[in-house]
């Protein structure tokens, strides 16, 4: 007979036994893989089954906002600095990349919220909820990337070998977005203020990232852009997609390294906080 698994529940924080906790974390991650896949398939299916345009909606958002910015700059209402790429492509890639990041940032809290009924009633690897969110973002991202590639082809830009590294850019956006999103989830589950604040902050953040406006040449605006850790991520990802050599690979890697550490911390916090959050939500 295989050894019987013994589970102990006590008021002590699991941090008292970090090794056991780490083992449990990775065990649950493994155990939750398949469930995560099921949940993702379920949500994607359900999302598109009640819709005629279906997948098209995934890029309606970025395309319309691209159109808006093209109109604003074309009509001379705003003055965008010079970009090396044709401006339409610059905006389209920017908004697409940005939307992947914001989705990743919002996913942990949204996923946990919508699964709260299940979480309060059933015991299953909580990691599955987060992973399922990542799967869904990857699915949406894949659709967006196809659109991007098609539009690059139409304009006649050859990404070259950099394209092979482009998925890395997407993954790093996902990594940074998920780790930040996961970090705010415990408090966000208790107080709705967090979700609102994030929405406001993201709006502001977009204007200090090279999404719509290129990097300023000088001045305090440049400093702001440089301080923003998202700048190297977005710039590098776009460079790989459009065949430019990445300008600042060092910072790109550093940001990813920090994000990886952050993800581990956020994951730990998420796990520890789950019983407390469930206790405060009703059954």
């Amino acid at each position: 007979m295989p050894p019987v698994p013994v589970t102990v529940y006590s008021p002590d924080s699991s941090l008292h036994n970090p090794l056991l906790m780490l083992r449990d974390m990775f065990r649950d991650l493994l155990a939750g893989r398949e469930l995560a896949w099921r949940l993702a398939v379920r949500d994607i299916n359900a999302q598109y089954r009640q819709s005629i345009l279906g997948i098209l909606w995934a890029f309606v958002g970025p395309v319309t906002s691209t159109a808006t910015w093209l109109f604003l700059s074309g009509a001379g209402i705003i003055n965008v600095g010079k970009t090396e790429l044709p401006y339409p492509i610059y905006v389209l890639t920017g908004t697409m990349i940005w939307s992947i990041f914001t989705e990743a940032l919002n996913a942990p809290l949204n996923q946990t919220r919508s699964a709260s009924g299940m979480l309060a009633k059933l015991n299953f690897p909580r990691e599955a909820v987060i992973i399922s969110g990542i799967y869904q973002i990857l699915f949406n991202a894949a659709i967006k990337v196809v659109l991007l590639l098609v539009s690059l082809l139409v304009v006649g830009i050859n990404p070259g070998w950099g394209l092979l590294l482009f998925p890395l850019g997407i993954l790093s956006l996902l990594l940074v977005g998920t780790s930040l999103g996961l970090l705010i989830t415990p408090v966000g589950m208790l107080y709705s203020d967090v979700g609102r604040a994030v929405a406001v902050l993201l709006q502001f953040l977009m204007y200090v990232s090279p999404v719509i406006f290129p990097l300023p040449k000088s001045g305090w605006a440049l400093t702001l852009f440089k301080l923003n850790p998202l700048t190297p991520l977005i710039a590098t990802t776009r460079d790989w997609l459009t065949g430019f050599p990445p300008a600042d690979l060092g910072t790109f890697l550093a940001v990813n390294g920090v994000a990886l550490l952050l993800l581990l911390i956020a994951w730990l916090a998420y796990r520890l906080s789950m019983p407390i959050i469930i206790e405060r939500m009703s059954a």
Binding site: V4, V6, T7, Y9, P11, K121, N123, P275, I278
Partner: peptide
């Protein structure tokens, strides 16, 4: 719910052996 591991006890201890 405590036995199911959904919420933690505030004091005491629960030990469960086997698949739940």
């Amino acid at each position: 719910r405590m036995l199911n591991g959904l919420i933690k006890p505030d004091s005491g201890r629960i030990e469960m052996r086997g698949k739940i």
